[in-house]
Amino acid sequence: MSRESDVEAQQSHGSSACSQPHGSVTQSQGSSSQSQGISSSSTSTMPNSSQSSHSSSGTLSSLETVSTQELYSIPEDQEPEDQEPEEPTPAPWARLWALQDGFANLECVNDNYWFGRDKSCEYCFDEPLLKRTDKYRTYSKKHFRIFREVGPKNSYIAYIEDHSGNGTFVNTELVGKGKRRPLNNNSEIALSLSRNKVFVFFDLTVDDQSVYPKALRDEYIMSKTLGSGACGEVKLAFERKTCKKVAIKIISKRKFAIGSAREADPALNVETEIEILKKLNHPCIIKIKNFFDAEDYYIVLELMEGGELFDKVVGNKRLKEATCKLYFYQMLLAVQYLHENGIIHRDLKPENVLLSSQEEDCLIKITDFGHSKILGETSLMRTLCGTPTYLAPEVLVSVGTAGYNRAVDCWSLGVILFICLSGYPPFSEHRTQVSLKDQITSGKYNFIPEVWAEVSEKALDLVKKLLVVDPKARFTTEEALRHPWLQDEDMKRKFQDLLSEENESTALPQVL
């Protein structure tokens, strides 16, 4: 008996699950189920560990084997000379395990699969056993689809999209007709009724959600790893209520002995410091949205989908001078704002400069500016000194954290500008005749005249004003913003236009 009217009423009120309206889709043409990776026989039982391990490696599972009696060998002398080797079968990115008779397991190899009674669906509900069930008529011709799209860092995100009359449910929550939600590992998919569980979705590319604290899981769906560094790992996640993407940084307390840091400095109150950081608001710094204190720290951040500045300059790639100017102007505005709010970044580098898009002209935002507030000064500097390429001379020669101030950030900005303009770092371990530390503390950077011949004198002058060993003589952010190279009204107008595109209400910060 159909429950279409009941569920449609529920759909009209929406769902609290991570779902959002989605535009129309072009329906895929039908194809045989076997060619799409559906096993030839149905099963109602969950797999054992041996079955799972075989399939996850990209080899055929026991459900897909063919009797050897149906095959015969071709003698080598009868092999056609022009026969080309077969292409290897792509490894599946996800697996659906059937929970009921009449449904088959599915190895997801393609990027898009339609499910329903219509014969054009890649996964067609046409098993005779299924057709005899009382629920068969409640399934729509095109009930739902599972697909994946390219996300940040060229990774993939799996989604389920509801197109049914009676509802598609993920972990008992209604997706909603015309809406989608991301699928995470071990999600249970039910059709027409929330208790009519048909599939379990296994994402073969992500970790299980159960490793994360419950308070975090209640608000966010964790997904793929976006990156990792000395101070922690960053994962893509989704807000459950809105389906908006965020980035979540995970900082290990054990790695940084944060408990010991608190004992050594009783004034170090991470929760208080995070609340201060959350109040920071500038178009060129990453917004801190939320914070969870569990076995590790979880910092929920605004997501930038254009990648890191590092990706644009790695491998001796240089940027156009006009692009360097647009990016560097924004970096200076961001660091100036942090300094005005009493925050020294201490870890400025291309990896911590994020881009809003893949376009050459785009907004940038500074991230990882609050680590000293979370990890403690000593722990952070011990970590950073392991990779000193961007560290100021006074940091390398000081004991502990004494003896330096916000000028350290201006040195790091000078190193970043040098790399963007030239395509190579000013200080490098590859210069074996002088140690990296000695290069930095003496201010002897690697200047290649033929490379810098293409760079304007004004740009080079600003680099020199920032890479000054004496912090008292080094340019401040205010002085850098007043430098002739940055007195470019076309560049500032472009920045204002980019801000307006992102948010019509965002105004250009005042600069002296």
Rank of each mutant, 00 (worst) to 15 (best):
G178F: 03
R195L: 02
S120R: 12
P266C: 15
C231E: 12
Q20P: 09
Q29I: 11
A267E: 15
G116M: 07
H163V: 06
S35Q: 14
R132D: 08
L130N: 06
D6A: 11
F201C: 04
N171V: 01
A17N: 06
Q209I: 10
H13S: 09
D203C: 13
P47G: 09
Q36L: 14
V66F: 15
F256K: 00
K224M: 00
T168W: 01
P152H: 09
L96S: 03
F125I: 07
F144E: 01
S24Y: 09
P85E: 08
Q69V: 07
Q36R: 11
S228I: 05
N185I: 11
D111M: 12
A190V: 06
P128I: 01
T65N: 12
S252P: 12
G102P: 14
L96A: 05
K244Y: 14
D134R: 10
K241L: 07
G151W: 11
S28I: 15
N186V: 06
S2K: 06
S61N: 09
Q20I: 04
G151E: 05
Q209Y: 13
E81H: 15
E86H: 05
A98Y: 11
E127D: 07
H54R: 09
W93D: 03
K241N: 14
T89F: 11
T65D: 14
S164M: 02
A91Y: 13
E84N: 13
I250E: 03
Y113I: 10
Y72L: 14
I248R: 02
N196E: 02
G232F: 01
E84L: 07
L96C: 11
P88H: 11
T89R: 06
G102L: 15
S16L: 10
Y113M: 09
N112T: 08
K131T: 07
Y136E: 01
D134F: 13
D101A: 11
G14D: 03
E4M: 15
L268Y: 10
S44L: 07
L96H: 01
L204S: 13
N105T: 07
T272V: 03
S5K: 14
C231D: 07
R117S: 01
F199P: 13
K253E: 03
Q83T: 12
S192G: 05
A94C: 07
S39A: 10
N110Q: 05
S15K: 05
W114Q: 09
K249Y: 15
G229F: 15
K253Y: 02
S73N: 13
V200T: 12
R117T: 00
K142L: 09
K245C: 05
Q209T: 12
D126V: 09
A94S: 14
E271T: 09
I74T: 14
S73D: 13
R254A: 03
K141Q: 05
L226A: 08
A104D: 10
G229V: 08
T242A: 05
E79P: 11
T45C: 11
S32H: 12
K241G: 06
S192P: 15
S50N: 10
F125S: 05
N196G: 15
C121Q: 03
E233R: 10
D118R: 06
S260N: 12
T59I: 08
L60V: 08
N186P: 12
T225Q: 07
H22T: 08
Q209H: 11
I221Q: 01
E4F: 06
G178I: 15
C18Y: 07
S164R: 03
K135T: 08
A17Y: 08
G167E: 05
Q36I: 11
Q100D: 04
K197I: 00
K119L: 09
E8Q: 14
E219T: 04
E81P: 10
E4P: 06
E107I: 15
G58M: 03
E84R: 05
T172R: 08
E233Q: 14
S49T: 13
K179Q: 01
Q78A: 10
M46R: 07
F201S: 08
L191S: 00
G30C: 10
Y113S: 03
S39V: 14
S41K: 15
T205R: 04
K135Y: 15
Y159V: 14
N48D: 13
L106T: 14
L96E: 01
F199A: 05
T59E: 05
K177V: 04
E219K: 05
E161A: 14
K224T: 01
I160N: 02
D218L: 08
P21Q: 09
N185H: 14
L204I: 15
Q100G: 10
S41F: 11
V246D: 04
A257N: 00
G37L: 07
F199R: 02
Y212S: 00
A237W: 09
P213Q: 09
T45W: 09
S252K: 10
Q29G: 11
S56L: 04
S16R: 08
E87W: 07
Y113L: 13
S41T: 14
D101M: 13
T168C: 00
E107R: 15
E271Y: 10
L129S: 09
S42K: 07
F115V: 14
W97R: 08
S32T: 11
Q69A: 00
Y123V: 15
W114N: 11
N110P: 02
P182F: 10
G102N: 13
P75W: 09
Q36Y: 02
A98R: 11
Q34V: 11
Q27Y: 07
G30W: 13
K142R: 09
G23K: 03
T68A: 01
V25P: 11
D101F: 15
Y159S: 07
L216G: 11
R3S: 08
